[in-house]
């Protein structure tokens, strides 16, 4: 039975989740991947924030608190009225954001990160300390996930390119699995350790 989560998510709700839990997420979240994470850390967290970027910073500071960042570079289509639709929007590999993720979670009060492939120690520690989880989406399920994106609210930093921009989206029942929780558990570490033992047995044959 999947747990329903709606943004803004409380710390208590997040700390109740455990590795392996299936989640259906609803509310306003943001896409952000390589360029966005580098930008957030360099312009906002390390700073100083240039005047030209202050407006975006204030918006993100307000909206990301209790919300979720989705590692995704979507295929989008522009409508005649100037608004956008998500056509295909599966997760991208998260590990590339490992240097940045924990700092972004802590600075903005993000409660969850959606992606694929999982992340490492620094992010796991960030999740434990700040109260956030890593949510694994189904890689490649791009049409199905795009269907859960009910509205593209806005887009920022489109000059990074369509895949790399911040897309502000409203989702309903976005399906994912908790693979890193606030209790220091990582399903990825567990599977890797078990498969390493089996690999060693196979290599010894």
């Amino acid at each position: 039975m999947a747990t329903k989560l709606t943004v803004p998510i409380s710390e208590e709700q997040i700390r109740a989740l455990k590795v392996g839990d299936q989640v259906l997420l609803s509310g306003v979240i943001f896409t952000g991947r390589d360029a966005a994470h580098k930008y957030m850390v360099e312009s906002f967290i390390k700073g100083p924030c240039p005047d030209s970027e202050k407006k975006l910073y204030d918006m993100l500071k307000k909206e990301l608190a209790g919300s979720v960042i989705y590692h995704c570079g979507p295929v989008v289509k522009k409508r005649p009225d100037g608004k956008y639709d998500f056509v295909a929007a599966g997760p991208t590999t998260s590990i590339r954001e490992e240097p940045y993720q924990a700092d972004v979670i802590g600075h903005f009060g993000v409660r969850g990160v959606i992606g694929k492939g999982g992340m490492r120690e620094k992010t796991l520690e960030g999740c434990r300390r700040h109260g956030a989880v890593y949510l694994h989406a189904i890689g490649g399920a791009a049409t199905l996930i795009a269907e859960t994106v009910k509205e593209v609210v806005d887009v920022y930093k489109l000059d990074f390119g369509v895949p790399e921009a911040f897309w502000k989206i409203r989702v309903v029942d976005f399906p994912c699995v908790v693979t890193m929780d606030t209790h220091g558990q990582s399903l990825h570490d567990r599977v890797e350790a078990e498969s390493k033992r089996k690999l060693e047995a196979l290599l010894a044959r």
Partner: peptide, 8 residues
Amino acid sequence: GRPICQDT
């Protein structure tokens, strides 16, 4: 008729 995966 939409991409199976967004990473085409």
